[in-house]
């Protein structure tokens, strides 16, 4: 397909929009991961450092679903989400629940331990090499939209991320379970007085957050083509920065923070140098902590989940 060629200001404009499109897919991925961080923090005040690694496990479940079971990408994503929902619930039950009444630093150290455990357990089980996400599962296509180059990967990632976020919003705003999650995050004791089981609600929160991370993991496989057991670390940290940027514990904040981080990153590698790509995230973190530690959406009465 011949692409239209533009010159001058139009070209500059197009280049800008092109970066924006590229940033949107990456941002959608960060947003999905950031949601899990923020939901878990909202309900038990824990930065779940193993969250990026749950994303990695999701990517591998998706990979094996495609290569061993021969499923398509959507089924792979669904399998990954189910597997990681179970994994998230188990991690909370086994590692975090016994520490719920101990200090936050003890829980934080356990989370870091859990992160290392998932990374090295995966290396132990399947080796440290990267695996290539099969092209057959996602035949590359690109479209020319008035001069903008859009790939079917971008479309797939953005549409599935938006669908998942809408489902999440529906659960949290409209369902009894979602309301219980909000109630527990606002006032755990009062929630118990309503008859809400705190344990069950926390389990559900981990299940949902981990499922979203798993979906993001499959998207990362699609986006970068390769996956490896340590792939969760950097996107995990960036998504964490996204959650802090939006205001940790605030769901719309995580979504906006994720997109901002993704777009920022593509612009830096597009216009500056990809060498600075990762540094940007941490620069942003330092800036937020200096200027507005509660994040973009943070205020004292902000809704938390």
């Amino acid at each position: 397909m011949p692409f239209t060629v533009y010159k001058g200001e139009v070209a500059i404009m197009l280049e800008f929009l092109q970066q924006l499109v590229n940033g949107l897919s990456l941002g959608a991925i960060y947003a999905l991961i950031a949601l899990g961080y923020t939901m878990v923090y909202g309900i038990i005040m824990l930065i779940n450092f193993a969250h990026g690694d749950i994303m990695m496990v999701g990517a591998f479940v998706g990979f094996y679903s495609i290569t061993l079971l021969g499923t398509n990408i959507v089924m792979a994503m669904i399998f990954a989400m189910i597997a990681c929902a179970v994994l998230g619930v188990l991690i909370e039950k086994i590692a975090y629940r016994p520490l719920r009444k101990s200090t936050r630093i003890a829980a934080l150290i356990t989370a870091i331990g859990m992160s290392l455990f998932l990374e090295y357990m995966t290396i132990f089980l399947i080796g440290p090499q990267q695996k290539v996400f099969p092209h057959s599962a996602f035949p590359h296509k690109e479209y020319d939209l008035m001069g903008l180059l859009i790939t079917n990967k971008d479309i797939f990632i953005i549409i599935s991320a938006v669908v998942l976020m809408l489902i999440l919003q529906y659960i949290i705003k409209m369902t009894k379970t979602g309301k219980a999650m909000r109630a527990v995050s606002v006032d755990r004791e009062a929630a118990v007085l309503m008859g809400i089981s705190v344990d069950k609600t926390i389990s559900i929160t981990f299940a949902i957050g981990s499922a979203l991370a798993a979906a993001a993991g499959v998207m990362v496989g699609v986006y970068y083509n390769t996956i490896n057991p340590l792939m969760g670390i950097i996107p995990g940290l960036k998504a964490f920065v996204a959650a802090v940027l939006g205001g940790i514990g605030i769901i719309p904040g995580a979504m906006v923070g994720g997109f901002v981080m993704g777009i920022l990153e593509t612009f830096v590698s597009g216009y500056g140098s990809s060498l600075y790509r990762d540094a940007v995230a941490f620069g942003v973190l330092v800036l937020i902590l200096l200027i507005k530690p509660t994040g973009l959406f943070g205020k004292d009465t902000g809704e938390k989940v």
Binding site: K176, K179, A180, R182, A183, V186, D187, E189, A190, A191, L193, M194, G195, I196, T301, G302, E303, K304
Partner: peptide, 21 residues
């Protein structure tokens, strides 16, 4: 409970729904 402990960031109706959880 003492100090009312309503769920501040939830609507009046949602608070009542929680009572019937």
């Amino acid at each position: 409970p003492e100090g009312r402990r309503v769920f501040a960031p939830m609507t009046v109706q949602e608070n009542l729904e929680m009572g019937a959880y």
